[in-house]
Design a protein around this nucleic acid. Structure first.
Length: 593
RNA sequence: GGUGGCAUAGCUCAGCUGGAUAGAGCACCUGCCUUCUAAGCAGGCGGUCCUAGGUUCGAAUCCUAGUGCCAUCACCA
């Protein structure tokens, strides 16, 4: 039974004893820093049951608690707020009970499985800043769900086919002169991306020419020669034309090699992969079945739709009149396939930008109407766009912040700052390089993950990401500082395996223990809300608290042995929590920096 | 036009089920390195919580209307 439950029970008892009334509930909140106390009980809501002066009621309940609850050492009442001071021993015994627990706050993996989809790029261009947010979010949410006790499958659906893929293929065929990643020294995804841009350039020129020669804009667009070529290629691909398929495989292979490097640097991974080329035909049978059941209806031209007007949405197409699949068809099929492949999954999370809110609303509703019981366990992890000061990023117009470039820039900035500070003399160049990357990526990841997922992010490439204040490097730095203390403590022969029985706690020690105590609930809250931002903000608060402690009290210089040991133990626990919390964000922590 | 999201300090963001004087970081100003790493600590400056109503003992938080920005409403993805 935790302390709040004890207090809840006792407050009710107090009200019963003193006023002879039954209290339906008690409102708790952490005591604000400006007042003395640890837990605050709000008296106002009690006035419905007990008539009287809130201050007086607070005093009487406070006195009762102090007398009847061991952990309550004191109290004070300010206006209608009863502030309870908890005994040092309460905090000490809590700390002693968890101090050697590894993975404190993490629940053991259960059989309750969930699938998290993220990344899901097109294979015609390199990954950019938008993908970075997606990847970091998806990866982190997956890790948080694991920590909250779920079994997690990370997955993605790779959009490896379709007209947009054919565009870069056509451009390469026409202007590529047989270029390959090894002949050019370019990363595969970059090379292919160049041809995607090249396609668009020619396409625009052709449209302009055609308009100049008097063709209507719509037709000029629809029937530009190079677009027709791409369309022709798509038909050939769907027909399984050997040459087209071979080219497709080759170019996608280049892209995958490139993506692999980016993913590795970003530190994300996947358990299972789905390819659109395998799944795009799935769902057609389901649509046929749904048509029989009357979930869908067919229009005169043969196209199949679902009517969602009663649910406040519109009519939505699920199959074209020529019988080909649209995205929705594929997504229906893929969802069903995933449940077949992983019979234990009890829910799926789709990490996709908020521009597709409507799509997922419809998808989930369709699956529900088709009668799949798991449809209400689907969640669209919808996140805001990453915009530049100039507006939206557009691949075709070259206004994107490239993922690889950005990571390299961040690493470079970390290197510059580190070298100015010059604390790493004994490191080899290799060790330094690894550390710079760790810090640079820590800055980037934290910067993106600390923001509530649903809010849009404005990213200014001119203004570099901060390394001070509420940032990844600040937290990494605190971790490194603690490691330094622990190394020193070890060399001094301080044994931290024993428990400290009973010492008076410094206010800062107490605050630290309180903050540590919040970690398990924070993980659960972050899991419930699919929000790494909650982990980030928690960690920041913990670290701020530690730095204040570090500044105010001497750890290794403390004369009293028990206190010295406790302080080292506390420092170690804070470091462990930082490391575990950052692991949930996909950020590494350094031994020194 | 219909639907959905967002709006808090100059900038970037917190603010849990409604609770005390709305909090951080950056920027700007002032102190603190002969003591465990100054990527730090302590302090100062800075607010019409978009606007107007409403519910409540109490509203940044809930409800209604409006304003602004973004997204979406295609046999696109």
């Amino acid at each position: 039974m935790n302390i709040q439950e004890v207090l809840l029970h006792k407050v009710k008892e107090a009200v019963h004893t003193i006023y002879g009334q039954e209290l339906p509930s008690v409102e708790f909140q952490p005591t604000r820093k400006d007042f003395e106390g640890d837990v605050t009980i709000v008296v106002f809501p009690m006035l419905r049951v007990i008539k009287g002066n809130p201050v007086q009621i607070g005093e009487q309940i406070g006195a009762f608690l102090k007398e009847h609850v061991d952990e309550v050492s004191d109290f004070n009442v300010i206006k209608g707020f009863l502030n309870i001071v908890l005994d040092d021993n309460f905090y000490l015994s809590f700390f002693n009970s968890i101090k050697s627990e590894s993975n404190f706050g993490f629940l053991k993996e259960s059989t309750d499985a969930i699938m998290v989809e993220y990344s899901s790029p097109n294979t015609n261009k390199p990954l950019h800043l938008g993908h970075i947010r997606n990847n970091l979010l998806g990866y982190s949410v997956a890790e948080i769900l694991k920590a909250s006790g779920r079994k997690v499958y990370k997955t993605q659906i790779i959009n490896d086919r379709g007209i947009h893929i054919c565009k870069s293929m056509v451009a390469w065929q026409k202007f590529g002169n047989g270029e390959t990643p090894s002949s050019t020294g370019l990363k595969g995804d970059k090379l292919v991306g160049n041809y995607y841009v090249a396609f668009d350039k020619i396409y625009k020129e052709q449209i302009a020419q055609r308009i100049a020669s008097g063709i209507d804009f719509k037709d000029a667009e629809k029937e530009a020669p190079i677009l027709l070529e791409a369309k022709k290629m798509l038909l050939k691909w769907e027909a399984g034309d050997a040459e087209t398929v071979a080219l497709w495989k080759t170019m996608n292979g280049w892209v995958y090699k490139g993506f692999e490097v980016t993913y590795k640097n970003l530190g994300v991974d996947f358990d299972t992969l789905y390819y659109e080329s395998d799944t795009y035909l799935l769902g057609k049978n389901v649509v046929a079945e749904g048509l029989e059941k009357g979930v869908f209806f067919k229009k005169e031209d043969g196209s199949v739709w679902i009517d969602l007007t009663e649910d406040g949405l519109d009519e939505k197409i699920v199959l074209r009149s020529d019988g080909t699949a649209v995205y929705m068809t594929q997504d229906i099929g893929t969802a069903i396939q995933r449940v077949k492949d992983h019979p234990d999954v009890n829910g799926m999370v789709y990490t996709v930008g908020n521009e597709q809110d409507y799509h997922f609303k419809v998808l989930f509703l369709i699956l529900k109407k088709l009668g799949f019981s798991w449809s209400d366990k689907l969640y669209h992890l919808s996140y805001g766009m990453v915009d530049l000061p100039s507006g939206k990023m557009k691949s075709r117009e070259g206004t994107v912040v490239d993922a690889d470039d950005l990571m390299a820039d961040m690493t470079q900035t970390a290197a510059t700052i580190s070298e100015e500070l010059g604390k790493l003399e004994e490191y080899t160049d290799e060790e330094k390089g690894a550390l710079y990357q760790m810090i640079g990526l820590g800055a980037l990841k934290y910067y993106i993950l600390k923001v509530d997922p649903k809010k849009r992010i404005l990213f200014d490439p001119e203004e570099s990401v901060d390394f001070q204040g509420n940032t990844g490097p600040f937290i990494q730095y605190t971790y490194a500082r603690i490691q330094s203390i622990l190394r020193k403590a070890d060399s001094m022969g301080i044994d931290i395996s024993e428990s400290t029985a009973s010492v008076e706690l410094h206010i800062k020690e107490k605050e630290l223990i309180k903050q540590i105590q919040l970690f398990p609930d924070t993980i659960q809250l972050a899991a419930e809300n699919y929000s790494p931002a909650l982990i980030a903000n928690y960690t920041y608060d913990l670290v701020k608290e530690f730095n204040s402690f570090y500044q105010q009290v001497s750890i290794l210089g403390e004369a009293n042995e028990e206190k010295r040991i406790l302080r080292v133990q506390l420092s170690k626990k804070v470091a462990d929590v930082i490391q575990d919390a950052f692991r949930l964000l996909g950020i590494e922590v350094p031994e020194r920096m």
